[in-house]
Design a binder for these strands. Structure first.
Lengths: 177, 177
DNA sequence: TGGCTCATGTAATCTGTTACATGATTCT
DNA sequence: AGAATCATGTAACAGATTACATGAGCCA
């Protein structure tokens, strides 16, 4: 069966764009993939090791400004692995909205405090939405790199869902009042 | 510290509405909470056991049509536990869209197959949206039970996000063509 | 009679996070 | 000098899923 873990695919996918260190992979996930994925160092570094053991990536130890760096690159086998996973049908999106759980059980908490949860949710969305929109704007300018068309898809997804979140927030507040 | 696991809170929350068996809890999660939460028997039954050991729920073994049933009810301690969790700020919504991962790395897969993923996503949303809308309609009719106002919040959330998914699907298909 | 749903539960396993350890460099 | 960031990694643990085991009732 081999690797079906998604963290493997995430790393292969990112390295398929350009060689990176584990640290950079983490940063990339926390910025670009933030709206639909997350991962910790505790899963990234061991995964890089096992990917190398299986020849899906190669590592190159170098240094930059005196700091040691381990730069990973995808191999042909790795790309093949990625492609294989990509063409399989999507199994399942896993959504766990703690926010919605607290709203669903909100009767026990009461209107006032439930409204506070909604407000906190809204505040966060309002903070993130402009970032996503900026991201879309920049991606729309870029025409040459083929990658960017696909990045645009996910950024637009973020924008649309975030806008729907805001719309819902208004409805939700009205219902509770 | 005690239980911070969300499955505990999900079960307490559901039992706070009415006493249920583990099997019924599972069904409830798979229908009503489906759009924002999931859980397996392998986590539900052991959790019910530990909740009982800690006196957050009580069990009553009975039978119905010859079938043995274990019906759980929430206790005052359990309700207190639930309330305590509800009033804490929301820590994090965990969203892991496998769909978006595959789109993000879509360059390696190509337009045709990426469009297939989008289509599969769209088909599913089109199938689920009417169910959610029906749900909203029914909840809007009910005025007496206070619980339903909170259920309505989450159902409306589902409707709004699902509509935004469909909107995005159109955009996504245009971008790739 | 065979298959589906109801119903409960456990063991093995998987996957990932948190917290810790370490140490260099850059910023203030 | 001290804090923050860069950078890599491990060990313990948490939390959940999958697969299996078991058995009764219902429907065709």
């Amino acid at each position: 069966m081999a690797t079906e873990k998604k963290i493997d695919q995430v790393i292969l996918g990112l390295l398929n764009h350009e060689p990176m260190t584990g640290y950079e992979i983490k940063k990339r996930i926390d910025t670009t993939l933030k709206y639909f994925w997350s991962a910790s160092f505790g899963s990234i570094y061991p995964t890089l090791n096992s990917l190398e053991k299986n020849c899906y990536v190669t590592k190159e130890e170098g240094q930059e400004n005196g700091r040691k760096k381990v730069i990973y690159s995808i191999t042909n086998d790795g790309r093949e692995k990625l492609r294989e996973w990509l063409k399989n049908p999507i199994v399942k999106d896993e959504l766990r909205y703690e926010t919605l759980l607290k709203l669903f059980f909100g009767k026990e908490l009461g209107k006032v405090d439930t409204l506070k949860h909604i407000q906190a949710f809204e505040d966060n969305v309002r903070k993130e939405l402009p970032i996503l929109e900026m991201c879309v704007n920049q991606l729309e300018k870029i025409q040459n790199e083929e990658d960017h068309k696909y990045y645009l898809l996910t950024a637009k997804f973020g924008v649309e869902t975030y806008k729907s979140y805001l719309k819902w927030c208004q409805q939700a507040k009205e219902i509770l009042r």
